[in-house]
Every structure is written in C-alpha cells, then in structure tokens.
Design a protein around this nucleic acid. Structure first.
Lengths: 209, 209, 209, 209
DNA sequence: CATGAATGAGCATTCATTCAT
DNA sequence: TATGAATGAATGCTCATTCAT
C-alpha cells in the first residue's frame, strides 16, 4: 500500500551528494576527502552516504559518469550543424570554460591521483572515449569539407584537441597567472592553427605521422 | 662515541629511497604508496626511512626537488648556445622523452592528487618556476633574433610550451594509442608552429592577448 | 480513524518473522543475521520488523519462548500415560528428531554465541527449567515403579538426559558422519542404560554422587 | 647487522594476546569481544593486535589451533600405555576437567556462534579430527584386548565419547547446579558403561547400528 | 499498519610515525 | 646508523533502530 521510493527525490539526493563530493574532492584530493567531510558538506549523516554509494570510490565513478553523460548530451545538441570547424572550436571553447569552475581542475587532479584503481582507470577511459566519439565525426566532416587538415587521421586530430584542452586545464589549475579569460582566445587560435594544419601552398606536408 | 656519517653513503641511501618512492608512487598513487611498500621496494626497514625523511610528504618533496634540480642542470648545459628556436624545441623534445619513462607520468598524477597540501603546491610552483626560468631567456633571445613570434610576452609563450608538454605527458599517460615515439614529431611541429606564430606576411596578428 | 488490529493476522505475521529469523540465525549466526537479512527472508520491510519486535534480541527471545512453549505442550500431551520409562525415552527420541531439522542445531549454536546477554541467558534457563519440569515427574514415577534407578536424585537424572540430548544435537551439528537416522537407536539404548542404572545384582551401586 | 625479532618474545606476546582473547571471548561472545576490549585485556595498543593477527577471526583460529595442538600433545604423552580402557577414561576425565576452567565452555559457546564462518568450521573440524585420532587407537586396542565393546565401529565409539564430553561441557556451562566436581565421577561411570557396552553374557547385542 | 530513507554510534582495520635496542 | 615492534589516531563502512509518510 505504502507508496515509497520517490525516484525524483532519490535522484535529487544523489546529485546533492555528488556535488558535495565534487567540491570536497576538488578541495582536498581523494584521501583528504573523507566520507565524513563529504557528508558534512552534503548535510547528511554518514549512513545516508552509503545508501547512495556503496564505497567512496563509487562516488568518484558517479561523478565521472556524470561528466561522460554531459559529453554525450553535448553531442546530441550538435545534431544538424553543418560547420564542422566552428563546431570543433566551440567544443574546445566549452572545455576551456569548464576550467573556469575551480572544482573541475581540482577534481581532475584528485582523480588523477587514484587512477591506479582499475575502476577509476576504466571510467576515465570511457570518458576519453566519449570525448573522442564527440569529436570524431566533426573532424571527419571537416576533412571532407576541406576545412580541416587531411595529413593526419581523424582519431589523431581528436587526441590532439584533447591534449590542448587537457594541457589548458592543467595550466589553469597550476599557474595563477594563467586564467581562462586571459588565455581562451589564444587556445582557440592555437586549436584552429592545429586543425587547419601547416600551410601547404607548396603542396608539401611539414609533419606526418 | 663519535658517529661519523659518510656523506656519500648517506646521499646514496637517500637516492635509493627516492627512486623506490618514485616507482611506488607512480604505480599506486600517494595513498596507495604506503611507507611500508616504499621501504620494501627500497629494501630497508621502516625505521630507516624516517632517518632520511621526516614524513612521507617530505619524500615527495625531495623527488620534486630532484626534478627541479635536473631542470636547473639542463639550463646550465645550454650555456653558450646561439640557436634559441632549436634550444626551445630540444627542451620540448626532452620533456616528451621524459614521458617515455612510465614512472614520470605516474608520479605526476600521484602528485597532482596531493596538490592540496601546501608544501606540495609550493614545490610544484617552484618546479614550474624553474621550468619557466629555463625557457624564458631562450624565448627572449628568439624574439630578439626574429625566430620567435613577438605578439606574445615571453612568459606567456613559456607557459604555452609548458601547456603543450603537460598535455602531451597526460595524453601519453591516459591513452594507450598515444605513444611518445608516434607523436613526438608532431609535438615538435606543433610547438614550432606555436613559437613561430601566425604568418604575418600582411603585418597583422591573428591572436593577441 | 479507529485502527483495528486483527489479532490473528498479527500473530500470523509474527510467526512468519519468527520462522524467517530461525532460518537466518541458523544459517549465519547472531551477528551474521542482520535485521535486513531477516526482513528479506520474511518478505517484509525493515520498519515492519520493529512493529513486532522492539529489538533483534527480542526476536531471539521469542524463538526461544516458542521452543519453551512447545516443551510445555509436550508435557500436557503426556497426561494420563502410565509407562514412565517409555515416556522418558520418547522424549529423548523427540529431541533427537529435532536435531534432524537443520535449523535447530544452527539456531542453538547461534544462541550459544550470545548467551552472555542476560536476557538470553534467562530465556535459556527458562527453557532448561521447562525441560526439567517435563522430565522430572516421569523420572519420579519411574523411580517409584522401579523402572528407573534410584541411586541418583530425579533432578540429576533429568540433567543427564538433557546432557545426552544436548551432546547428540551438537554432534549432529558438528560431524557430518553422525546422523540422526544412524544414531537415534544408539541414543535411546544409551539413555535406557543410563536410566536403568548399573546392574545391582549384588546390591551395590557403582556410581553415587 | 641489527639483531631483531626475538622469536621467543614474539611467541610470548602472541600467547598473551591469545589468552586475553580467550578470556574476553568467553565472557562476551564473538561480537561482544571487540578488538578494543581484547587489546585492553591484553594491555596492548590496537595496532599491536594486528601485528600478531591479521583479523579478529584469525585470533579465534589461533586459539582453536592451540587446543588442537594440546590434543596432539596429549596423544604423544600416552605412548607406551598398555591399558586402553583406563586411557580412554583418563581422556574423558581430562576433558571434564577442562570444563572446570570457566573460559573453556564460554569460548566453546562463542565459537559455536560463528561456526558459519568457513574458516572457523574448518578449524573446528580439524579439532574434532585430532580428538578422534587421539581416541581411535585406544578404542581399537581396547576392542582387541576385550575391554571395549565390539558391536560398534571404533570411529563410532570415539564419536560417542566426544558426545558425552561435549554434552558434559555444555551442561556445566548452562546449569549452575551441574558442576564438574559433582558430576565427574558419574561421567566416568557412564563412559565406562558405554565403552563396556551391553552385558552380553548371553551373547546377544542390545544395540547395533 | 507498512514502508524504507535516514541516522549515527560503533567497529575492524590501516598506517605514518616513534623509540628502545 | 639500522631495525622493526609498538602505537593510536583516523577512516571507511555496517547495522540496529527511528520516524515521516
């Protein structure tokens, strides 16, 4: 008779813990983020935490999966676009903007510190794959349309865009003089240069792999 | 009664522990790298460890300082060179080669995970500073000689070279398809493109900050 | 508003939980028998459990009391019998048969493990007393009729019958080669020998206490 | 160079913890015997406990193994004896005496409560086997010499002696009126009766299995 | 009554660090 | 100096129990 399990309530609570975890992990790293601290931040009892996540690691995985899901959503939102180069630069730009939220680079560092846990490595690989799957079709279309260099395989170009975004994120996290606002434009310019490739007026390619 | 400390013996022992720490930290991350595991790897007793490092964190700092010292040495070895662009690309190349040692990216990740410890953050900042100090004079000379773009301040160019190296390191650590051997050349080409800057035949600058 | 409690429904539910508890306690011992596991076995929610039993311990007590009640019922069923020795052996036999239900020895072991709880010790003592009260009149009648040895006080004889039954139960629980079917007959023979006592053709008693 | 690991000191400490564990387990059962309580009783820090036993369960196993070892020693001490029936009764008597140490029945109960743990069940089975191995040769010799009944297989007789000892132990633990001193003699008489078997002047056997 | 989400006290266990030898 | 036994604070996690719905 009794109606229970309001799934909406459950999901809201879960998200609340995820956000608290994101905050605390970013601030204190994996080992510094004690479950007690996360519970305090989330305003819940310690037992409640384990109703939603069986282990502390599982919370980390949930946060990563949330990120992966956002990447997938991003892909869906781009359906119908016909300007591949612009799309790619928008994606790079949106990752740069992520770096402006101080929780993101902090969390990325925290996760890097526990990447030796197989489950985390797997989730990270899945995230990377989602990112690549998001980029790949636009790189291919760009190559077809002639906007993107063709001397490199699409997957490799996607990896290098991830390299630029990852390096950017790390730099923002490390160097107080390196800010998103100040460097965003240069990131896009550098990414564009990379995507366009070496000027090949003379028909030769400077870098081949 | 007089306990003589053979300073050479002491230094050798210290280095032995540092290398063991580097290995174990890279494999298991900071929290997974228990002092017991490090001692086992180093072949010493747990008490001995604390004769050389007062805390586990201090070992991490010592490893970081070793890296910083190597950067300084690198700077000294470049004295007298007169080809700034080549020097800069050699430095980027040498960092790429570091990534080939699996302990380096692993250790970098482990350290990222405890960057919230002020002492670690400081050591990392010092490392970053050493790297910048290494790059800076060569960027400036390159700008003077006309080999390096002049639309960006030298410090900013140095930061971006660090961005490329850091992103490269991370990518090697994350993506099994992304290897040092396979991508080194493209890294150098991209770095050269960045250093040279946008073609300014027409006198305009594409990106300015 | 008036909440009527169907007492029959209530009792049925209670028994359902008791049986689930018996099963789970037998399988996993007291600490392994979490209330969650018992609720799952009983097919009820965790809250419901505490409508019927205020604490987990109280469930154990209820199970014990059920056993005690059965002993009392057994006593009532024997009213009118006139063959004390046969009655005593039937009782021993019925306890042996209990051991064939794997839940009984398992539960007995589980309860033994928490006998340090005063409430459990009390309930166990009450159970023992009920058993003794069941045996005692038949021992006395047997002594009067000459079928049962008279060199031992009735209470002592009752204790020893309990000893044989308890030892039998434990053995069945411990030793896979020791089965109720295989050993029942020998138990009865041994109990009879004990009840009859040492052959006193010569008028002396071998054991006196 | 440094000489460490005084194995004698280690063994002494280990035994100290075992005895503390025996005491606390007997008093409070398995779940009541927190490692903290055991450490307090042993006068050690909590960390020290885990230098000697990896888990709480392992301490229980160690105690059981100690008992098994004592049984084996007992066997050795009987070498050379030529009076099987007396030996068997001495063994039964020594088990009865064990029951006088209040820690023994308490510990036996505590262990019964966690018998669902496979490791504990195995250790208990090993203990049972040791007991059987101790009894078996003397039962066989007794049968050969005619002192012990031959209508039952030796293993079965051994089981029944264990049944009597186990039931005795349980009774002492349960019933305050049932004392070792008061009942020891009757135990031996009952065991002798069982060993001798039904009087077979007439050549018939009363109980067969 | 029935439910299960929420709670937090309590526990086993880990691990950096100390110190007597 | 080298050792490893000893320490105990700190942590992740469990589970009996409560209570709003």
């Amino acid at each position: 008779m009794a109606r229970r399990v309001d799934p909406q309530r459950h999901e809201a609570r879960r998200l609340q813990i995820i956000l608290a975890g994101l905050t605390v992990l970013a601030e204190r790293g994996y080992e510094g983020a004690t479950t007690a601290a996360i519970c305090r931040e989330a305003g819940i009892g310690s037992g409640t935490f384990f109703h939603y996540f069986a282990t502390k690691t599982e919370l980390v995985l949930a946060i990563l999966e949330l990120g992966t899901a956002e990447t997938v959503e991003k892909a869906a939102a781009l359906e119908g676009r016909t300007d591949p180069l612009a799309v790619l630069l928008e994606l790079v730009g949106s990752w740069a903007d992520d770096a402006a939220d101080p929780r993101i680079p902090g969390f990325v560092r925290a996760v890097a510190g526990v990447m030796h846990l197989p489950a985390v490595a797997d989730a990270l690989a899945a995230d990377d794959r989602a990112q690549r799957d998001l980029l790949l079709p636009w790189v291919e279309r760009g190559q077809k349309s002639g906007e993107v260099r063709t001397d490199l395989l699409p997957a490799r170009i996607a990896s290098w865009l991830a390299l630029l975004s990852g390096g950017f994120l790390e730099r923002v996290a490390t160097d107080p003089d390196f800010t998103v606002d100040g460097e965003r434009e240069l990131l896009l310019a550098t990414a564009r240069d990379f995507l366009v490739g070496p000027e090949t007026q003379d028909g030769t390619v400077r870098a081949s792999g």
